[in-house]
């Protein structure tokens, strides 16, 4: 006899619109700060590790935001 257990989505679909909104807002803020820092910083002030960290944080938040926008709008990837 096989033992079966219902499969649930990693995140409850009810939360998708909230997640989409939060991650997109926070993600855009991080991306904006990253781009501002990129453009205004002088060559002498550059720090590659700091920039990469900012880029990573921005891409994770905005990436998840975009992903949840897909799910919330009914495009179940």
């Amino acid at each position: 006899m096989t033992r079966l257990e219902p499969y649930y989505s990693p995140i409850d679909p009810i939360l998708y619109p909230i997640f989409a909104f939060l991650f997109v807002v926070v993600g855009l803020a991080f991306l904006a700060s990253f781009i501002v820092a990129q453009i205004t910083n002088q060559k002498s002030q550059r720090n590659l590790y700091r920039e990469l960290t900012m880029a990573l944080v921005a891409s994770i938040t905005l990436g998840l935001g975009g992903f949840f926008v897909f799910l919330a709008s009914g495009i179940y990837v």
Binding site: L56, A58, G63, F67
Partner: peptide
Amino acid sequence: SIFHEALLVTGAVFAFCILVMILT
């Protein structure tokens, strides 16, 4: 595979950031 798509979007944004870094 379940998280594959989320990583794909994240990767795309990260690639954009790298592009900005190169352009500056």
